[in-house]
Structure formats: structure tokens, C-alpha cells
């Protein structure tokens, strides 16, 4: 499944557009950045409430396919700018991390 297909299926709002054809191979949920760097995989969709610059840096380092901000979490202005420069796709939803992950889990089966 591509990032844009996932965005459609989960009804996500696009905050920063990246590579739409990028594949989503799996998912990871978490807000503690070192934890994410330890456990998330390349090409995961990353579900989090962290919308700051450091989250964008982590997304680049881990090379996740996109960041999904859950529960309508805020994306900082400087983070949005950096994401655009780095090509990090950022999406958002009012739904909880749990609910979105459950749906993505079904879609990926």
C-alpha cells in the first residue's frame, strides 16, 4: 500500500506532502524518540503525537514512510518547514493512535 492509499483509507489530512508513491510496509506507534529509533523500521508509518523538529529528525534518520499525527496533535511551524525540505510526508487525524493502528493493521493483512 502507498502512503496516499493509506491516507485515503484512513481519512487523513495532509499537512506536508512527500513522496505519495512511497510504500507503507508496516506501522510503529510511540512518542519517545529514542524508543522509536530503537524499534521502528524503515518504511513504517509512524503514529505519534510528537509534531516537533526532533520528530522530523527522527523520521529522517529511521527513514519511515510518513509521520501520522494522531488525536489532532499540533505540528510546529519549524517542523513543517524542515519536513518539506527533507521530503518527510506528514499526515494528521483526530482519531486515536489505537484506532488508526487497528485500521492500518486490517488494511495491511
Amino acid at each position: 500500500m502507498t502512503v496516499s492509499e493509506m491516507a485515503n483509507e484512513l481519512n487523513l489530512e495532509t499537512l506536508v506532502r512527500g513522496d505519495q508513491d512511497r510504500l507503507v510496509a508496516g506501522g510503529y506507534a510511540g512518542d519517545l524518540l529514542s524508543w522509536v529509533m530503537a524499534r521502528a523500521h524503515e518504511d513504517d508509518a509512524w503514529f505519534t503525537v510528537m509534531g516537533n523538529l526532533n520528530a522530523v529528525a527522527v523520521a529522517v534518520l529511521v527513514n519511515v514512510s510518513c509521520i501520522v499525527l494522531t488525536e489532532n496533535a499540533t505540528l510546529d511551524d519549524d517542523a513543517a518547514k524542515r519536513a518539506a525540505v527533507e521530503g518527510v510526508f506528514i499526515l494528521r487525524s483526530h482519531e486515536s493512535t489505537f484506532s488508526l493502528c487497528a485500521k492500518l493493521g486490517n488494511l495491511l493483512q
Binding site: 519517545l32 529514542s34 524508543w35 510528537m50
Partner: peptide, 9 residues
């Protein structure tokens, strides 16, 4: 609050 401090670094 910024997402650090998990003691995982």
C-alpha cells in the same frame, strides 16, 4: 515533553 528522556539513548 519534547520526546526525550526514555533512557534509551
Amino acid at each position: 515533553m519534547l520526546g526525550f528522556g526514555a533512557g534509551m539513548g
